[in-house]
């Protein structure tokens, strides 16, 4: 089971005419809403400070970008180095973005909300600790908000009633030392996708060489801390020139996978420089996650 790169990839390049996205456009969230695809993407200009830009598309392939970022550093010393890696879900008619604030004392995970996908308002941090790769489930579980996050090198889960106070932190998946691609660290990609077999989690991992690869796992619908199955092999790794060479080599990084028709659309960044798309029949991915491929 391997994802197949879309022939038009890369879809999005840096735009040197915009100072804030002149150098790199990469880790992006994509959701479908009102018949359109909406993308929030991390971008860096000549100062390498990360901003979050917005683009819209009718087919998920060809994008129109706003001239200015929709989220920029705004917390002074706490995020002056950038706002990074957006992941977006729609939950109770509100859009929530999880992103990473990068400031003077390292980085920490933030949550923001919006009603129109353009203007965003901070809800608050998940915690003021070195943590990232956090992503909300697209619906409440047991009446509470649920979030996956990464206290290195593991994937954790936590719950909240108000998106501000998070409790019941628990490790759900760890790196597999014996496995050759995710032995050092793992983290969630985009929001989990609900299926009849469980939550489909697409996640990334790397080994000693820091090559970022991706695979899937199935989490229990009612208790996502319970991993139903986690295949040993990966479904995506950097092979194209634009995935191997760029700002950070050998990195494919994804903040969203969505279901478009019968296909899984896996949006990802190539070498922290450009944005691409890979796809696979959704049923095949779920079958692989179940371990019955």
């Amino acid at each position: 089971m391997q994802l197949v790169r879309h022939s038009e990839s890369p879809l999005l390049y840096p735009n040197p005419l915009h100072r804030w996205e002149a150098m790199n456009v990469f880790n992006c969230a994509v959701i479908q809403h009102n018949g359109l695809f909406h993308m929030h993407y991390r971008a860096q200009g000549v100062d390498f400070i990360s901003h979050i830009g917005y683009a819209v598309s009718i087919d998920g392939l060809h994008w129109n970008r706003l001239e200015n970022p929709v989220v920029s550093p705004h917390q002074g010393r706490d995020d002056y180095r950038g706002v990074e890696d957006p992941r977006v879900v729609r939950l109770d008619d509100i859009f929530y973005m999880t992103y990473t604030a990068y400031g003077i004392n390292s980085y920490f995970p933030m949550i923001a909300r919006s009603e129109n996908l353009i203007t965003w308002e901070d809800v608050g941090p998940l915690e003021r600790a070195q943590n990232k790769d956090h992503v909300l489930f697209p619906e409440k579980i047991g009446g509470r908000y649920a979030i996956l996050h990464r206290r290195s090198p593991n994937i954790w889960i936590a719950y909240s009633d108000d998106l501000k106070t998070w409790t019941d932190h628990e490790i759900i998946m760890k790196p597999r030392e014996e496995n050759d691609w995710d032995s050092k660290s793992i983290g969630s990609n985009g929001p989990p996708i609900k299926t009849g077999d469980g939550w489909l989690l697409v996640y990334h991992g790397y080994e000693a060489q820091h090559i970022y690869r991706h695979s899937v796992a199935l989490l229990d619908l009612e208790n996502p801390a319970k991993v139903i199955n986690r295949p040993k092999s990966f479904i995506m790794e950097p092979t194209e020139t634009w995935e191997i060479k760029g700002d950070v080599p050998n990195v494919t990084f994804s903040c969203s996978s969505i279901v478009v028709g019968d296909e899984l659309y896996f949006y990802y960044a190539g070498a922290d420089r450009v944005i691409g798309l890979a796809t696979a029949p959704f049923n095949d991915v779920v079958a692989f996650a179940r371990g019955s491929d």
Binding site: V46, D47, F48, I49, R81, D247
Partner: peptide, 8 residues
């Protein structure tokens, strides 16, 4: 050095 800022 991989950029014009201290964190690069």
């Amino acid at each position: 050095i991989n950029g014009p800022v201290s964190w690069r």
